[in-house]
Amino acid sequence: MVDSDPSEPPATGIPGSPDELIAMQARSERPEKPDRELSARVQEVLDLIEQLDTSAAEDQQIALTLVRHLEGFHDEVVEEMKADEQAKHSQIVAWSIDADRLMRSRILLESVDLE
């Protein structure tokens, strides 16, 4: 493994070492996707979540519910696109990849042991 200076950001979005991963996590910005402005509705939900006195297990359940909802939405879009003869193959692939990412995220989140 190549030694790297953890204070320098990695050249790509994928860290090459644990030190680079720690440095990436310490940075406030994420180069992959810029932060989006939150809608009033989203901000209201986030404010309510912050007010709740939930346990880690309850937070995990909330996160899983949201990820499952988003995963289901992506799965539905993929199925609709597959049935649409005018849908572009590249769009189906992109939505499928994102659906797969969400599934993997859900599986990882489900595997977190909070006990």
Rank of each mutant, 00 (worst) to 15 (best):
T65M: 13
Q51D: 14
P15M: 03
E20Q: 11
K82W: 13
G72L: 04
S28Q: 06
R27F: 02
H74R: 12
S39L: 02
R68A: 10
S90N: 08
A57Y: 02
V45A: 04
E85Y: 03
A83E: 10
D75K: 00
Q25S: 04
A87V: 06
S90Y: 04
T54M: 14
E50Q: 10
D35N: 13
E20H: 03
E76F: 13
E29F: 15
G13R: 00
R36L: 06
Q25T: 14
D19C: 07
F73S: 12
P18L: 01
K33M: 15
E58L: 01
E80D: 12
S39K: 00
P15A: 03
R36N: 01
E79A: 13
E58R: 09
E80F: 08
S17R: 07
V67K: 05
I14A: 12
Q60T: 11
I92C: 07
V78L: 04
M81L: 14
Q51V: 00
A26L: 08
A56Q: 09
Q91S: 13
P18V: 01
D59Q: 02
A87K: 00
Q61N: 15
L52F: 09
E20F: 12
P15V: 06
L64A: 11
R27Q: 01
Q25D: 12
P31K: 07
A56C: 10
G13M: 05
T12F: 07
A57M: 09
E79L: 15
L21N: 07
S55E: 08
I49R: 02
T54H: 11
A63Q: 03
Q61H: 13
G72E: 02
D19A: 09
E79V: 14
E85S: 10
L21T: 06
E32N: 00
I92G: 01
Q43S: 04
T65Y: 09
V42Y: 01
R41F: 07
L52M: 13
S90V: 11
E20Y: 09
K88R: 10
L38G: 00
R68H: 01
D53M: 00
H74P: 02
A63W: 03
T12Y: 01
Q60E: 14
R41I: 03
Q60V: 12
E37T: 11
E32D: 05
I14F: 07
L64W: 14
T54R: 12
L66M: 09
R41W: 06
L66N: 05
I49P: 02
P15D: 00
E44G: 07
E44K: 03
K88C: 13
I92D: 03
R30W: 04
E79C: 12
V42Q: 07
E37L: 15
V77M: 10
V67R: 04
E85C: 05
D47P: 05
P34Y: 01
E37N: 12
M24Y: 01
L21I: 02
D53G: 05
K88Y: 09
E44M: 08
A63P: 06
T65K: 07
Q91G: 10
E80P: 07
E71C: 04
R36T: 09
K88E: 10
D35P: 15
M81F: 04
L64H: 12
E50L: 08
E80Y: 05
E85W: 04
H69P: 05
